[in-house]
Computed example of a mutant assay.
Amino acid sequence: MTHFLVLLLALLIGVVAGLRALTPPAVVAWAAALHWINLDGTWAQWLAHPITVTVLTILAVVELITDQLPKTPSRKTPVQFLARLIVGAFAGAVIGTAWGYTFGGLGAGMIGAVLGTLGGYEARTRLVAATGGRDLPVALVEDVVAVVGGFAVAALTAVV
Results as ranks from 00 to 15, higher is better:
8 L>H: 02
8 L>Y: 04
12 L>A: 15
12 L>D: 06
18 G>A: 13
19 L>C: 05
21 A>V: 10
22 L>G: 05
23 T>W: 12
24 P>A: 05
25 P>C: 04
25 P>S: 06
25 P>A: 07
26 A>N: 01
30 W>T: 06
30 W>S: 05
37 I>Y: 04
37 I>N: 02
38 N>H: 11
44 A>V: 04
48 A>Y: 06
50 P>Y: 13
54 T>N: 10
56 L>T: 06
58 I>G: 14
61 V>P: 02
61 V>I: 15
62 V>E: 00
63 E>T: 05
64 L>R: 02
65 I>S: 02
66 T>L: 07
67 D>S: 07
67 D>W: 04
67 D>I: 03
68 Q>A: 15
68 Q>K: 15
71 K>A: 13
73 P>G: 08
75 R>D: 12
76 K>L: 14
77 T>P: 05
78 P>Q: 08
79 V>M: 09
80 Q>D: 10
80 Q>V: 06
80 Q>E: 15
82 L>C: 11
84 R>P: 00
86 I>H: 04
87 V>Y: 05
89 A>K: 05
91 A>P: 08
94 V>I: 10
98 A>D: 11
98 A>K: 11
98 A>R: 09
99 W>C: 10
101 Y>H: 15
103 F>D: 01
105 G>K: 06
105 G>W: 09
106 L>F: 12
107 G>K: 01
107 G>H: 00
110 M>H: 03
111 I>K: 10
115 L>M: 14
115 L>H: 04
117 T>R: 09
117 T>N: 11
119 G>F: 03
121 Y>H: 15
122 E>N: 09
127 L>T: 13
130 A>F: 08
130 A>W: 15
133 G>Q: 05
134 R>T: 01
136 L>K: 15
138 V>N: 07
141 V>E: 07
